[in-house]
Nucleic acid binder design. Structure first.
Length: 104
DNA sequence: AGCGTGACGAACT
DNA sequence: TAGTTCGCCACGC
């Protein structure tokens, strides 16, 4: 069963345009919540795997973070690379430019 | 009902 | 600058 916060998390992620990334804290802020962990947990569960581009969610520090699927982080990096987001040493290149902020 | 844990973040030391 | 601690919401024991 999904809670409102989780559903909202998935809805928010679907708003992320291709070639852009966002952070867990950005989503939490968009949901008007401080529970970044719930967001991370929701993304990790991700029942809407192909519908929700969970690989576009990274850490606020610009790092990739984690990933549950394929070969883990490697797969996440590959998916991002296919969308034009370059990742070097587990970190987003030009993170500030690639970062997407939700419109309130 | 309480405790520990989780694809995290920000503050503190 | 790096490592540690607390906070947050949800879930399982």
């Amino acid at each position: 069963m999904a809670t409102n916060l989780q559903k909202a998390t998935w809805e928010a992620m679907k708003l992320i345009p291709k070639g852009r990334v966002t952070t867990y804290s950005a989503i939490a802020r968009y949901l008007d919540s401080k529970a970044t962990r719930v967001v991370a947990s929701a993304v990790g569960k991700n029942p809407y795997a192909p519908t929700v581009p969970c690989h576009r969610v990274v850490l606020s520090s610009g790092k990739i973070g984690n990933y549950s699927g394929g070969n883990g982080v490697s797969t996440k990096i590959a998916l991002l690379a296919k969308e034009g987001v370059v990742v070097s040493n587990g970190k987003i290149v030009d993170f500030a430019t690639r970062l997407w902020e939700f419109e309130l």
